[in-house]
Simulated assay, not measured.
Amino acid sequence: MTDTLVQFLRARLVEKQDHARSMAPIVARGAGSMDVRPELAAAFAQEMVTAAEARLRLFEETIYPYLWVDGRAGRLADLQMRLMAFEYTAHQDYRPGWAPDEAAEVS
């Protein structure tokens, strides 16, 4: 189960990063048509990219390495992964068994 969830989440995070990178210039250039100040649109566009990159790094560097660790650290990593994946419940490949409330107790 964990391997499948890892693959699902990693794919969604990379996908979101790619979308943010491709949409950022469009958002920044389209400020006038959205009646938004250009500097606000540019800042928002950069925030989209930075947030997507940060989510992917968070997963790869602070969650993934601990998923197969025994004890509290492993359970906490599993819960964090489930919480990150919960954002994608509307995706056709998301499985209800991945919900955070299905995680083992973290205590």
Rank of each mutant, 00 (worst) to 15 (best):
M23K: 10
H91E: 10
G71T: 12
L9R: 07
E60Q: 12
T89Q: 13
R82A: 07
L9G: 01
A85E: 01
G71W: 09
R29K: 14
R12V: 05
V36R: 06
R12P: 01
S22W: 09
K16H: 13
D70K: 10
G97M: 06
D101W: 11
Q46N: 15
G71V: 12
P100E: 11
A45I: 00
R29P: 04
E60I: 05
H91S: 10
T2V: 12
R57Y: 13
L5S: 10
P38A: 15
L83W: 06
T4K: 13
M84D: 05
H91V: 02
G32H: 06
D93Q: 06
L83V: 13
A20F: 00
L56R: 03
V6P: 04
R75E: 08
T50D: 14
A20Y: 01
D93K: 12
L9I: 07
F8L: 06
Q7V: 11
Q92G: 08
A11Y: 04
Y88E: 11
F59C: 01
E102P: 00
A24C: 07
T89F: 09
E15P: 03
E53F: 01
F44Q: 08
K16V: 10
P25H: 10
E105H: 14
Q17V: 01
A45R: 00
A104Q: 11
W68D: 13
E15V: 01
M1R: 14
R72V: 13
A20I: 02
A24R: 02
P38W: 02
L40E: 14
